[in-house]
């Protein structure tokens, strides 16, 4: 992602990224959240609290056997855990990403700190358990916290098996995913009919279609929501990073563009967690800044959307 200029500016302005995070935590208006505590949301089905910022692995963790890059990604994951993150999301579709996550978890000894989420991605609806087991071995976890049907591929068969796996205690939560705004009508129907714990969908300051139906429906049905593509694949930075943050950004708990984009998402009451992806430790620190401090209220959210639209 090309956001060096803005991020460098941010680092210069604050001295160190870590210090920047601290200052966010110390001085933000926390609206009931203790300043030093990560913001969490409860999974409606169980009441379990999870941090509102997670980590995606699409593209970023697919580095194959490149030991240098595996080490770099391990440091990204270490930073994520150190700053309070737990939710890591992957998919068998993402090439070697599952293996790299597994290697990083092994190196960090962090398997007990993770909320492990992956997907079932195969058109063969009889392969659900087999693929879940393959992924479990690649991640090196005892079991997944969340298994999701990737982009509704073969969802009927997979979901039936996932329900059985959940009943048998092989997975804690089940769900479905979509991205890029695909198949929302069918997605909505499944949300209405099926006993889902989680849905994952695309939502960001420019892709807001889900605000109309899917997010209200998730609240109504008590389904947790994971948000993918919170930076629209990095294009939000490319479009807006050269622009100044609005003067009122600090009042909304926002100190940089990463927080601007992420806090808009996680301040929606239906959203449980956003999963930005990054290859760089300094970007991870910025992303995790959104896990602390104040969240924008409804009026501020509207101003955020209006501001971006005006640029």
């Amino acid at each position: 992602m090309e956001r060096r200029f803005n991020r460098r500016q941010f680092l210069i302005n604050t001295g160190l990224a870590g210090l920047a995070l601290k200052s966010q935590v110390l001085f933000a208006n926390t609206s009931g959240t203790p300043a030093s505590s990560p913001i969490t949301r409860r999974v409606p089905g169980t009441g379990e609290a999870i941090p509102v910022i997670g980590m995606g692995t699409w593209i970023t963790f697919n580095v194959g056997g490149d030991t240098k890059l595996v080490e770099q990604r391990t440091e990204v994951l270490r930073t994520f855990f150190d700053l309070g993150g737990t939710v890591v999301d992957g998919s068998p579709m993402y090439g070697s990403a599952s293996d790299v996550v597994g290697e990083a978890l092994e190196a960090l000894g962090a398997r007990d700190r993770i909320f492990a989420a992956t997907k079932i991605w195969t058109g063969d609806e009889s392969e659900t358990r087999e693929q879940a087991e393959q992924s479990r071995r690649r991640w090196g976890v005892d079991r997944f916290d969340l298994l999701q049907v990737h982009n509704l591929l073969g969802w009927q068969g997979h979901l039936e098996t996932l329900k059985a796996m959940k009943a048998d205690g092989e997975v804690r939560y089940i769900g479905i995913t979509t991205s890029h705004g695909r198949r929302h009508r069918e997605f909505e129907q499944i949300m209405k009919r099926e006993p889902l714990d989680f849905v994952q969908l695309t939502y960001n300051l420019l892709d807001r279609e889900v605000e109309d139906r899917l997010l209200p429906l998730a609240r109504e049905r008590g389904i947790a929501v994971i948000v993918n593509r919170p930076f629209q694949g990095g294009s939000l930075f490319r479009r807006f990073q050269s622009e100044p943050l609005p003067g009122w950004a600090g009042d909304a708990g926002v100190g940089n563009w990463a927080e601007f984009f992420l806090k808009y998402i996680i301040s929606h009451p239906a959203v449980t967690c956003a999963i930005p992806a990054t290859t760089r430790v300094e970007h991870m620190k910025e992303n995790m800044g959104a896990l602390y401090g104040a969240l924008p209220n409804a009026e501020q959210r509207q101003r955020m959307a209006d501001y971006v639209r005006s640029l």
Binding site: N62, V63, L69, G95
Partner: peptide
């Protein structure tokens, strides 16, 4: 509805390395 980007699951740095 998929774009070419959706099928390229790695970045240029990883490829060039």
């Amino acid at each position: 509805s998929y774009s070419l980007q959706d099928f390229v699951m790695f970045g240029p740095q990883v490829f060039l390395r």
